[in-house]
Write a protein that binds this DNA or RNA. Structure first.
Length: 615
RNA sequence: CGGGGCGUAGCGCAGCUUGGUAGCGCGUUUGGUUCGGGACCAAAAGGUCGGAGGUUCAAAUCCUCUCGCCCCGACCA
C-alpha cells in the first residue's frame, strides 16, 4: 500500500527508551518454546499473568494499534461500520441458539450478585443478531455490515505458544446482514468484498499467507475461507495444488479422481486369524503381524444422528462404517457428505452392544449388524493382500477379500458406497488439475470468513419483510481476524537468531535511534533534531538513550526488531552523518548525511510498504 | 480430558536420593575503571523454597492433600 497509511497519524511519535517500559531479557522463561513466545517475552513485548493470559506492554500495544488501524481502514473501505458490543453476555441470549451448551467448557461464565449467569463473549453472533433484530425495521436498511475490535474470552483446554492460543485475546469480528444471497447487496457480494479486505490487511502486514477453503465448523453455514500465515510451526495443515492454485484446510480438502477396485479381484489366500492382544494402534498391530499399515483396512464405526436435509425414517441406517486404508485418516465431514447422514463417532458401549468389536471391526459387519451402511474409500477398495480386524476382540485377520468376505451387498448402493472418505495427504491427486499432486504446508490461522446463512437469524427470530411483503429470514455472514494472534504469527514468520524482524507496516516504531553517548550534548541535540524531523513526516521514532554499553544496545535493537536503526556515534557525526542500517541488513550499515537522513528513512519506509503489499 | 514434566530471588538453575540455620550465574543498586556487538573490580539489596496439613528436637529435603504452570495428544468460530 502507500507510505502514508503506515504511520499511526499525520505526525509520528517520539519516545525515549529510558522513559517507557521495555524490559528486555537475555533469557526467556523456561516455559516458552515457540519463537514468537520466546521473542515477545525476551524483547519486552508481553508478560504472562496466567495460563493463556498476557500483559501487552507498550511495544506490543503499539503493534496491536497499528494492526488494528490497518484492519479499521480496510473494514471501513469494505463498507463496514465499527461498533462495540458488551463483553458480558447474559446467558439468556443463547436461548435460541443453545450455543452456551455447544460451547461447553470453552465459555467463561461469571455470576452476578443476584445469581444471574453471564458469559464472557467468545464471539458475538448472538448479541449482534439481537441488536439488529431490535433495530432494523425495513429491508431497505440492508445490507448492513458491523464490526468491532475487542478482547474475547475462551477457556481453551490447552492454551499454548504464548499469544498464538490464548484464553484472552484480541479479535476483530464482523457480521453482515442481507436479504438475499445473490445480487447487489447480497451476502456473496459482501463476502467477496470482505475476502478482498482480508487479503489487503494481511498483505499490508507483510505476511506471507495462503487463503484456503475450510469447513465452517460448529458455527454452521455454507462456505468459509481461512487465511493462513505460511509457517512451518503452524498448528494447521493445509494442502495446495501447485498447478491450479487450489488450497484447502486438511478437513476440507478434496482429493482428485483415484482409481478404485472392482470387487472382483481374487483372494490372496485363506482368511487367517491372528491373535493380537492388547495392541493400542494400527501401527503396533501392523508391526506385530508384519503387515505395513497401507496393506491394512481401518474401519471406523459412526452412529447416525440425523439426515441431511430431512428427518430420519425407520428405513435409514443406524450405523455407518467407514473403511479406509490403515495409513489414512477418516474425515467425518466426508463421511457425512458421502452417506447423506449427519454422524458422530459411535458410542463404544452402544456399538459393542450392537455387535461391533470396537477396535477389531471389519467391513463384514455390513452383513452381520442390522441397520449398517458401509462406505469404502477408493484406496481401500482394491484387490490384493489386506489385513483387517476379525470382528472379535484381540483378533485381526489376513487375506481379507472384498468379494469373498462381504459379498452381494457390494452391489447394492443402499448398503455399500464407494466414496472419498479420508483426509488428503501430500502427493494425492489435485481435485482441480489433472496430473497435479497436492503438496502440504503448515499454517497459522489468522482470519476466517463464513457464509452463515440463516442459522442465527432463524434461531433468534431475525426476519424482515421484503418488497413483496413476504417474511424472510435475514442472511448473515461473519468475518474474524485474530488480531493478537496475527502479531504473534508475524514474529513466528519473521525473525532471526538475534530477534524479531518486524515488517514496516506493523513495527512499533519504524526507526530506532541508538545514541552511543546519551550524555553528550551534541548527540542529544542532533538526535532530537533528527527525531523531530522524522516525526513531522509521520515516522514513529524510538530513541535508545539508556546509559548502556554499545553491545547491549545493539543486541537489544536487534531483539526488538525495529526496521531501521540510526546510530549516533562520534565517527559518523564527525563526517556530518549518522549510520543508517536496516534490521534485515547483514553489514554494518552506511553513512547517511544528516541533511538527507529523513529522506533515506522515508524512502526505505515507502520501499518496504510497496514490497510488503506485493507479497 | 488422557500421558509426561516442573514450581527454590526479577530471569535461568543447583541443593532434595542420605532432613541439620538457602546457594550459583544473569539482572538490579552503589562506587571506581571502561565504552562500536550482551565489559571488569569492589561492595550491597533481594527468597514465608507454590499453598495447607502431617512426621520429627529439626523439613526446600520425608508423607498426605491441594493450587499453579509447561509440553505431547484429544479438542478447538
Amino acid at each position: 500500500m502507500t507510505a502514508n497509511t503506515i504511520a499511526t497519524g499525520p505526525t509520528g511519535s517520539v519516545q525515549r527508551w529510558s522513559r517507557t517500559l521495555i524490559p528486555t531479557a537475555r533469557e526467556a522463561p523456561a516455559e516458552a518454546e515457540s519463537p514468537s513466545h520466546v521473542l515477545l517475552l525476551r524483547a519486552g513485548y508481553i508478560r504472562k499473568l496466567g495460563a493463556g493470559i498476557y500483559d501487552y506492554l507498550p511495544l506490543a500495544w503499539r503493534v496491536l494499534r497499528k494492526l488494528s488501524e490497518i484492519v479499521r481502514q480496510e473494514m471501513d473501505r469494505a463498507g463496514a461500520s465499527e461498533l462495540c458490543l458488551p463483553v458480558l453476555l447474559p446467558t439468556e441470549l443463547y436461548a435460541g441458539t443453545k450455543r452456551d451448551v455447544d460451547y461447553g467448557d470453552l465459555l467463561f461464565k461469571v455470576t452476578d450478585r443476584k445469581g444471574s449467569v453471564a458469559a464472557l463473549g467468545p464471539t458475538h453472533e448472538e448479541p449482534v443478531t439481537e441488536l439488529v433484530r431490535g433495530s432494523i425495521n425495513s429491508y431497505k436498511q440492508l445490507p448492513l455490515n458491523l464490526y468491532q475490535i475487542q478482547t474475547k474470552f475462551r477457556d481453551e483446554a490447552r492454551p499454548r505458544s504464548g499469544l498464538l492460543r490464548c484464553r484472552e485475546f484480541i479479535m476483530k469480528d464482523a457480521y453482515s446482514f442481507h436479504l438475499a444471497l445473490e445480487g447487489p447487496g447480497g451476502l456473496n457480494e459482501t463476502y467477496d468484498r470482505m475476502y478482498q479486505a482480508y487479503v489487503n490487511v494481511f498483505s499490508r502486514c507483510g505476511l506471507d499467507f495462503t487463503v484456503v477453503e475450510a469447513e465452517s465448523g460448529p458455527i454452521g453455514g455454507s462456505a468459509s475461507h481461512e487465511f493462513m500465515v505460511n509457517c512451518a510451526s503452524g498448528e494447521d495443515t493445509i494442502l495446495k495444488c501447485p498447478v491450479s492454485g487450489y488450497a484447502a484446510n486438511v478437513e476440507k480438502c478434496e482429493i482428485g479422481a483415484r482409481t478404485a477396485g472392482t470387487f472382483t479381484e481374487p483372494p490372496t489366500g485363506e482368511w487367517t486369524e491372528v491373535h493380537t492382544p492388547g495392541l493400542p494402534g494400527i501401527h503396533e498391530v501392523g508391526k506385530f503381524m508384519k503387515v505395513k499399515p497401507d496393506r491394512m483396512l481401518k474401519t471406523i464405526v459412526f452412529q447416525v444422528t440425523g439426515k441431511v436435509g430431512g428427518a430420519l425414517s425407520p428405513d435409514d441406517p443406524t450405523w455407518i462404517l467407514a473403511t479406509v486404508r490403515g495409513d489414512h485418516d477418516v474425515n467425518e465431514g466426508k463421511v457425512k457428505a458421502a452417506s447423506g447422514y449427519t454422524v458422530a463417532l459411535a458410542n463404544e458401549v452402544a456399538a459393542r452392544a450392537a455387535g461391533f468389536a470396537i477396535g477389531y471391526v471389519s467391513p463384514r459387519c455390513v452383513n452381520t449388524v442390522p441397520g449398517t451402511m458401509l462406505l469404502i474409500d477408493p484406496d481401500a477398495s482394491h484387490g490384493g493382500f489386506w489385513a483387517t480386524g476379525a470382528d472379535k476382540p484381540d483378533h485381526h485377520a489376513k487375506h481379507f477379500n472384498w468379494r469373498r468376505d462381504v459379498g452381494a451387498k457390494l452391489d447394492q448402493p443402499r448398503y455399500v458406497k464407494l466414496a472419498d472418505l479420508r483426509n488428503a495427504m501430500e502427493g494425492d491427486p489435485s481435485p482441480r488439475a489433472e496430473g497435479a499432486k497436492l503438496v502440504t504446508g503448515r499454517g497459522i490461522e489468522v482470519g476466517h470468513i463464513f457464509k452463515l446463512g440463516t442459522k442465527y437469524s432463524d434461531a433468534m427470530g431475525l426476519s424482515i419483510l421484503d418488497d413483496k411483503q413476504q417474511k424472510r429470514s435475514v442472511i448473515m455472514g461473519c468475518y474474524g481476524i485474530g488480531v493478537s494472534r496475527t502479531m504473534a504469527a508475524c514474529v513466528e514468520m519473521s525473525h532471526d537468531e538475534n530477534g524479531i524482524v518486524w515488517p514496516m507496516g506493523l513495527a512499533p516504531y519504524q526507526v530506532l535511534i541508538t545514541m552511543m553517548k546519551p550524555d553528550d550534548p551534541e548527540q542529544q541535540r542532533i538526535t532530537g533534531e533528527v527525531a523531530e524531523r522524522l516525526a513531522a513526516r509521520g515516522v514513529d521514532v524510538l530513541i535508545d538513550d539508556r546509559d548502556e554499553r554499545p553491545g547491549v544496545k545493539f543486541k537489544d535493537a536487534d531483539l526488538i526488531g525495529i526496521p531501521i536503526r540510526l546510530t549516533m556515534g562520534d565517527k559518523a557525526l564527525a563526517a556530518g552523518a549518522v549510520e543508517f542500517k536496516k534490521r534485515t541488513a547483514k553489514d554494518k550499515g552506511e553513512l547517511a548525511p544528516l541533511a538527507d537522513v529523513a529522506d533515506w528513512v522515508i524512502e526505505a519506509i515507502r520501499d518496504a510498504g510497496v514490497a510488503e503489499a506485493k507479497r
